[in-house]
Nucleic acid binder design. Sequence first.
DNA 1: CTGTTATTGGAAACCATTTTCATTATAAAA
DNA 2: TTTTATAATGAAAATGGTTTCCAATAACAG
Lengths: 165, 165
Amino acid sequence: MMKQGVNVMPDRNCRGRPWLHGKFKGCGYRLTMGREAILGVLSKHAGHLSAEDIYMKVHPGHPNVGLTTIYRTLDVLSNLGLVYKLDFGEGRARYELAQGPKGAHHHHHLVCTGCNKIIDYTDFIDEEVELLKETERGLSRKYDFNITNHIIQFYGLCEKCKGKK
Amino acid sequence: MMKQGVNVMPDRNCRGRPWLHGKFKGCGYRLTMGREAILGVLSKHAGHLSAEDIYMKVHPGHPNVGLTTIYRTLDVLSNLGLVYKLDFGEGRARYELAQGPKGAHHHHHLVCTGCNKIIDYTDFIDEEVELLKETERGLSRKYDFNITNHIIQFYGLCEKCKGKK
DNA sequence: CTGTTATTGGAAACCATTTTCATTATAAAA
DNA sequence: TTTTATAATGAAAATGGTTTCCAATAACAG
Ligand SMILES: [Mn+2]
Ligand SMILES: [Mn+2]
Ligand SMILES: [Zn+2]
Ligand SMILES: [Zn+2]
């Protein structure tokens, strides 16, 4: 019912997510109502949302935004590097903001194969980062590869699921 | 047109893949023609085969084995831990023998996002294994998780693809 | 061999994601 | 503000890997 229009005021009013606006405009993308709604959902809720999760959260306030637009927008965001597309082997992709407004950073995942619970972890990241850099350097040299990205996921059973047989 | 029947001789004759036979029988699975053919393809060709890849390799010798059986058998093998089901983000699963007959071991993957080339690497695995163990121990304790598995993949451009703009 | 039942092939179903295309809305120009 | 070019959209249909169904078949214990 309100705040559905594009923000018409000058740039200094872009508190909240200035970079998103900038990226969009700067790359020739139009900042639409649907896209703003999707960005809103992504920044409001902690990550790991599926396209349909996002659709269902956007829908109440924007019943005219279709699932197709969710997919298309996530694709754009993903290509812009603003969103990570994640695969936890469930047969559907999940998405999370590359950097939360309050500065969430790169992290890896712990996935429970029992209940699909997903834990973000940044612990041990110091040692990991060190070895990762070393490994990437070695692999790049050895295989003449230009490494841009990596996936590290640990699978197992969470404290609840490890009890059940 | 030969060796299509189940091996009727006693167990010492199971040269080649004794464990596979043993696992199958031991778990109550029947060792069928189709399953043997699939195992044959998996052990003959280096990993990273899709279900359809396998189907096409099995088909000439066994035109009566359907794609459905390929999927079902891969599922069984995967649950028995004899085969790894891999996902390189192509929208289809790929499979590789957990342990090749000549003793191929656990390894990680380097994936080219340009041409989908996949490189197995075991280099640097000493340091990786060390850190992995340490990380797993820490994560297990901190999150009360029972870690059974991990995925580590590096993405980038291979020497051929990094040239193209 | 025979009987039990795990396994099979083929067709249909499934289901997340993509494509198509006519319509609409954004943002720049006038 | 009005006009204009075209990026973006929604709905429906298509796609494509994987699963499910089910009647027919084959593995193998006895
Ligand atoms: Mn996360
Ligand atoms: Mn491999
Ligand atoms: Zn769990
Ligand atoms: Zn390549």
